[in-house]
Amino acid sequence: MAMLKDITLGQYFPGNTPLHRMDPRMKILLTIAYIVVLFVADGLVSYLAIIAFLCTAIAISHITPKMILRGMKTLIFIIALTGILNIFYTKGEGKPLLSFWNVAIYKEGIVTAVFMIVRIILLISGTFMLTYTTSPLQLTDGIESLLKPLEKIHVPAHELAMMMSIALRFIPTLIEEADKIMSAQKARGADFESGGLLRRAKALIPLLVPLFISAFRRADELAVAMECRCYHGGEGRTRMRSLKFGTVDLWALLIVAALAAAVILLKIFPVEVFGI
């Protein structure tokens, strides 16, 4: 069985590459832009352009493709489901490639499925790049700073950001803990792997109860520790790293803008390769 520890989702890999040095606000905005571009994109050429962009980003960041793939493993079910639904539910013109009962599979279905899968993989990898290269606190700073204008309409920007950052900080700790509790229960003969849905759900109780109790205990202790270090909300707080746009950010902005322009142009004036 895959160890829970292997999950890299939402983890940060410290480094000192241009991607790590970018302003988190810019990274967040560009990630959003990237997602929009991804959904606007149409046709093979656009996708190739996006893939090239992503690969370059990965190469610059020193994040190995293996780490991206490992993070992806946990989401494989969603990816597969999307693929299958698209294959079965897309009606094509021409003759179905395959038909049985009242299901028919068309060429368009397969093409759409492949595109959807590629799109989801690109979407996930892109957001991974954000969380892998941005420390949770930086991410938080970025979000807080971006949400700041909304405080006028009573959006608790600082609180939201702090909550998120702590959640991110504790994900690896809690995963490790879950792994340990699971091993301890297995040592007492617990069986997490066999039986029907109901039995499996019941088998999780010995894992979930201790895990939640531990999470509450940690939250309690952390709250006291934060108070001890003079935490009193966002008021009057300064930051060690002030957010500053630098040349790297400008470059990144220009590159993403170019990518967006290309994708939009290709949408208006499609260039077909291999009839796709």
């Binding site: 301890a184 201790p210 531990s214």
Partner: peptide, 9 residues
């Protein structure tokens, strides 16, 4: 395990 009290449920 170490700190086995955290596995009680």
């Amino acid at each position: 395990f170490q700190y086995p009290e955290y596995q009680l449920f």
